[in-house]
Structure formats: C-alpha cells, structure tokens
Simulated assay, not measured.
Amino acid sequence: MKPWKLLETKYLVDAPWLKVAKEKCELPNGKVIDDFYTLWQPDWVLILARTATGRWVMTEQYRHGSQTIELEFPAGIINKDETPKQAALRELQEECGYRPCEAPSSDCHALHTKYLGSLPVNPDRHRGKFHIVFIDGVSKAGGTHFDSTEDIESSELSDEELQTKMANGTFCHPLQIAGYYKWKLATR
C-alpha cells in the first residue's frame, strides 16, 4: 500500500485556530481527486488527573459546537514552547486549580506525571492530534486562571461514577473516552 501524492493545496480558511484546505491528490492507481478537504487545529493535551484518593478531576463547560454544557477531563492547547507534560501541568492549574504534590517542584511533577502518547483527532481528514498525560496524586492548590473565553467548573468523580457517566451518555466526548481507555489499557 502506498500513500497518496499531494499535488496542490489551497487554503479556504487559514486562521490561527483552524485551517481548512482543498487538496488535489493523486492516488497510487493514478486516479486524481480534485477536491479532498482537510482540517487542521493546533495539537492539544488531554489531562487524566487523579487525586491521591483515586478520584478523577473533571470539568464542566459550555461547548458551542454541541451547544451543550459538557462533562470532560481538563484539556487545552499546547503552546509552541511546551511539551505535552508541561502543557498538562499548566492547564490543570489554570482550569482547575490542581497540581501534583504539595510543592510545585520539578521532581514532584516528574514522579507523578506520565506521558501516554498521542492519537489522531480523525485520521481521515484531520491533521491534528491530541496527547494524553496522566497525572497522579493531584490536590487542590491555588486558584484558577481562566482565559477570557472560559467559564469552567471543576469536580471530582470516582472511577465507578465516571464509567457510569460514560455508559449513560452523561460523559460523551469520544476522544476523551479513547484517552481514558488508553490509560486503562496501559495500567493492566
């Protein structure tokens, strides 16, 4: 099997948070597709943060795409100068006011923070990916620092409560559920 050959790209939307391209591609069999549309958004980090008592840190916020208030794990865009782990620690503090251990030392972060890898957002048409970071032993330590567009409430759920919410559709973000199961499989 061979990849497609990209012949031409025309950006229909070229903004910092979203790019939409119309691409002309040649398939290995010689067929040419004149209008294959792709999307790009910045890479982001999914934060699976668990307290010392085994409860998951969760957020609720309005999501305009679905026009609903959604239960989610904390998450956020990775800045250009950050690793996924650094972005996870920053976003967890900013969105929820949590961090690992009592003191914000790098040794403490390294002991409790594990990078689980990345997954594509949608390999068919989307060029972005999300990174999964597990942070164990977090506790409330300080206030939140929301961006001007954020209004977030935090809570904690046991693993059983989280799985019940997955089963009944209260927690329904498919990429976040995939990240949770990636963690679950890594800890078997």
Rank of each mutant, 00 (worst) to 15 (best):
Trp17Lys: 13
Leu185His: 15
Leu185Asp: 15
Thr113Gly: 05
Pro100Ala: 07
Tyr181Ile: 08
Thr83Leu: 01
Val138Gln: 00
Gly76Cys: 07
Asp136Cys: 06
Ile132Cys: 06
Asp124Val: 14
Leu39Trp: 14
Glu150His: 05
Asn79Ile: 08
Asp35Arg: 08
Asp151Gln: 14
Lys19His: 08
Trp183His: 09
Arg55Cys: 00
Gly137Gln: 02
Pro42Met: 01
Glu91Val: 10
Leu39Arg: 09
Trp44Met: 07
Lys85Asn: 13
Gly54Asn: 05
Ser118Arg: 12
Pro16Gly: 09
Thr51Cys: 04
Gln163Ile: 10
Leu39Ile: 11
Asp159Asn: 13
Lys19Phe: 04
Lys2Met: 11
Thr113Met: 03
Pro100Phe: 02
Glu23Pro: 00
Phe146Ala: 05
Ala88Tyr: 01
Thr113Pro: 03
Arg63Gly: 15
Ile152Pro: 02
Ala141Ile: 07
Arg90Cys: 07
Gln61Arg: 13
Lys24Tyr: 00
Cys172Phe: 13
Leu116Asn: 06
Lys10Ala: 08
Val57Glu: 02
Arg125Trp: 15
Gly30Glu: 00
Met166Asn: 03
Asp14His: 10
Ser148Val: 13
Ala178Gln: 13
Pro3His: 07
Val121Glu: 11
Ala178Met: 07
Tyr115Asp: 06
Leu111Trp: 09
Thr51Met: 03
Glu8Lys: 06
Arg125Val: 15
Leu162Trp: 01
Ala103Phe: 15
Ala186Ser: 15
Thr164Pro: 07
Asn168Met: 06
Lys2Thr: 09
Lys114Ser: 14
Pro74Tyr: 01
Thr59Leu: 04
Leu162Val: 01
Ser66Met: 05
Asn29Ile: 02
Asp107Val: 14
Leu7Phe: 00
Cys101Thr: 12
